[in-house]
Amino acid sequence: MALVTTIKKMKEEATCSLCQQLMTKPVSIECEHSFCRKCIEDLIKKQQQWDSDLEEFNCPLCWETFERKDLRPMKQLENLIETVKKMERDKLCNEHGEQLHLFCEDTGQLICWCCERSLKHKGHNHVLGNEAYPEYKGKIQDAVAKLRQQEDECNNLKVTISRKILKWEEKMDLQRDKILSDFQSLLNLLRGEELDFLEELEMEKWQTLKKLQDSEASVERQSSELKSHILELQKKHQESTLNLLKEFSYEAASPRGRVFGTSYCLQCF
Rank of each mutant, 00 (worst) to 15 (best):
T5V: 15
T5Q: 13
T6A: 14
I7R: 08
K8S: 15
K11L: 06
E12W: 06
T15P: 04
T15H: 05
L18V: 15
L18N: 00
C19A: 13
Q20V: 02
L22R: 03
M23S: 05
T24G: 07
K25I: 12
I29G: 01
C31R: 03
H33V: 03
H33M: 02
C36K: 07
R37C: 08
K38G: 00
I40K: 00
I44Q: 00
Q47V: 01
Q48Y: 11
Q49R: 07
Q49L: 10
W50G: 10
S52W: 01
L54A: 09
E56H: 06
F57W: 01
C59L: 13
P60H: 08
P60N: 10
C62G: 04
E64H: 13
E67S: 03
L71H: 06
R72W: 05
R72C: 13
K75Q: 06
Q76N: 14
N79G: 04
K86Y: 12
R89T: 09
L92D: 02
E95A: 08
H96G: 11
G97L: 11
E98M: 04
E98F: 06
L100D: 04
H101K: 15
L102C: 10
L102S: 07
E105G: 07
W113T: 02
W113A: 01
C115W: 02
E116S: 13
E116D: 14
R117N: 11
K120F: 03
K120G: 02
H121Y: 10
H121A: 06
H126S: 08
H126N: 11
V127A: 10
G129D: 10
E135H: 15
K139Q: 15
I140K: 11
D142P: 00
A143W: 08
R148T: 12
R148D: 15
Q149H: 13
E153W: 11
N156Q: 14
N156G: 11
N156E: 14
V159C: 03
T160D: 09
I165L: 14
I165Y: 04
E170C: 04
K171P: 00
R176V: 04
R176P: 01
R176Q: 07
D177V: 01
L180T: 15
L180V: 15
L180W: 09
D182C: 07
D182H: 03
L186G: 01
L187C: 11
L187F: 08
R191Y: 08
E194T: 06
L195K: 13
L195E: 11
D196A: 02
F197C: 03
E199A: 05
E200W: 04
E200L: 07
E202H: 14
M203F: 03
K205M: 12
Q207G: 03
T208Y: 09
K210R: 14
L212H: 08
L212A: 08
L212G: 01
Q213C: 04
D214M: 05
D214H: 04
D214E: 11
A217L: 12
V219M: 06
S224Q: 10
S224E: 12
I230E: 11
L231N: 10
L233M: 14
Q234R: 05
K235C: 00
K236L: 06
Q238D: 03
E239R: 15
E239S: 14
T241Y: 06
L245W: 14
F248H: 02
S249V: 10
S249G: 01
R256E: 05
G257F: 01
G257R: 02
C265H: 11
L266R: 09
Q267K: 11
